[in-house]
Design a binder for these strands. Structure first.
Lengths: 334, 334
DNA sequence: GTGAAAGCGCTAACAC
DNA sequence: GTGTTAGCGCTTTCAC
């Protein structure tokens, strides 16, 4: 069942059938009807690789570290909903947490002639991203950039972190610690760089610079265990901790729970990401919502624009919102 | 940069270069060396669609409802690790929870000439699966089947459910309710059908048939809210509930928490899936582990075997294990 | 607005 | 073991 069969059945040339298939310019309405009817009747399905050979694959590749992240799920949904409307499909590829793994998957996606690429929080330098952008339309998520060669969509991490500090200060806290992901200390492309900056700026704005304490731990479950220990080792105990990311906060809660200590009795705790788990009854973690779905929609829109010809770059910053829940309360005795 | 360039550069025919590329039979070691060196030197990358046109795409498509499910993540990791060793790539496609959406995505995957397909808990009849299996090597996960046309990997749900009942009985429970997903009542292909059977069989084995109570609610967050209400409406309160799935148990905990009631004080509660959330400190849900990674590895192995030529079908049942945690305790006053 | 024909990069069949 | 060549299904000039 090929396009030749369809053309024969409809009594037109393959070229015309192809135009109808692609909704391309240069076919009369009558012809479109005829061809579409034949396609329907014959149950014709276009052959992906054959299309990819000459034209487009109508497929957008999305690279993520691992798929076990509720934020990615929302993001993928958002991208998917937008690009489907333009008859593109979405293909997701889990690439792991190593540079080489991500590079392999990225190359594989390019080899498969994806029409566009989405890289989510990639472990790649800005140079490598620009290199990639020369090969394929590119939109990067969660990487702050101002490159001329690709688009980016990121949360306003600075604002998000300051939202948390403002909320804690409003509750009466002064000694507020922040858990930092070491990797991003010096890299302005990373979200944690901006969250730290937002935390620092907000503390200063409230005249609390002296009360600030930054703990060094990776943003992972293991990092959360470390962070819980680091808090205890602080010379002066904070009354509140901004964990920087939900996964860290959840691990800290887990670790304290193991020691039969509880949040918010031990200290107030906030995360970042509004993961599904954070909303659950017995947890109710105060966090920051990034609206993954909306970010995904933006990504989809930017990528389709770029595939259709835009060449100048766009860099969107999305506004996060605070989700105040049960893990942040007024400090005791103050 | 095509295979023709590589062949020229290495001073061999394109056919030979192709053989080296595919690790196919019929090329001397000397030739392999030469060609590989040229590929390296020229930075040659095979063109996916061109390969898919004549031969294989070296890509396996995995269809999942949505990617926000920790079990899928482990599964994908497992599949990926096995197929990579055979130089296949994995492409994941979130297809949503509707029949039509899943069918569209499945068709798109076939159109793209995937070499094999993994369908995870598909919303498709066994007939439709057999239909699909005529088009493409197929392995289905979480669908109990004995079809001759495709392979399947599923957990031993009957055993899993009875493990939970045994555990609860051992703690001293007798009035143990089970939350059932209505959709699967009559369909022996569905996991819930077997979990219900396992629950019933175990209750009978313990002489508790009269104490059994099956509640009808969908296996979703919303279903969990309903289930919590249904438990309260039972004429005789159970001392323990097997929620059938973690998501249901978590929603039930969440709903009770809203009413300022707590697990296990209200009643003992068990889930199924060993989701990451279930292990967290403040939750510690008793559940059943399905070892998603191992299932994924099995899926990968079966699919590669089938792509390489096996034609008879395999149906693997994987043994689950009980994860006894804090939500199941001895009933009060007994 | 429509059709004929070339050719994308690769693989497989077959000849040597 | 190695090379020659046809052709996969589609898109895209370029005539008409």
């Amino acid at each position: 069942m090929t396009i030749v069969d369809v053309a024969k059945h409809a009594g037109v040339s393959t070229a015309s059938a192809s135009k109808v298939l692609r909704n391309a310019y240069g076919a009369s309405e009558a012809m479109r009807e005829k061809v579409r009817a034949s396609m329907e009747e014959l149950g014709y399905r276009p052959h992906g690789p054959a299309r990819g050979m000459r034209g487009r694959t109508y497929t957008i590749g999305v690279l993520v570290s691992d798929i076990d992240n509720p934020f990615f799920s929302l993001l993928a949904d958002g991208v998917s909903s937008v690009i489907r409307a333009h008859s593109y499909e979405l293909l997701l590829s889990p690439a792991g947490f190593t540079r080489s793994g991500q590079r392999n998957v990225k190359d594989a996606l390019i080899d498969h002639q994806m029409d566009g690429l989405v890289l989510v929080s990639p472990l790649m330098s800005s140079e490598e991203l620009e290199e990639t952008a020369r090969d394929i339309p590119l939109c990067v998520v969660g990487h702050h950039s101002d490159s001329d060669l690709f688009d980016s969509v990121a949360g306003d991490d600075e604002l998000g972190a300051s939202l948390v500090v403002d909320h804690l200060v409003e509750l009466g806290h002064e000694r507020i610690a922040f858990v930092m992901n070491h990797d991003g200390r010096m890299d302005p492309a990373r979200p944690e760089y901006h969250r730290l900056a937002g935390y620092r700026a907000a503390m200063e704005r409230h005249g609390l610079t002296d009360q600030a304490a930054v703990l060094d731990a990776s943003w992972s479950f293991e990092g959360g265990v470390t962070a819980a220990r680091l808090v205890d080792e602080l010379p002066v105990q904070p009354t509140a901790v901004h964990a920087g990311a939900d996964i860290v906060a959840l691990a800290m809660m887990n670790e304290l729970w193991r020691q039969e200590r509880f949040i918010p009795e031990a200290y107030s705790l906030a995360g970042y990401d509004n993961s599904r788990t954070s909303a659950l009854g017995p947890i109710r973690l105060t966090t920051v919502d990034q609206s993954g779905r909306q970010m995904g929609e933006t990504v989809g829109r930017l990528l389709v624009e770029r595939i259709e010809g835009r060449t100048d770059s766009r860099h969107e910053l999305m506004e996060p919102t605070l989700m105040a829940r049960s893990t942040t309360v007024a400090p005791r005795g103050e």
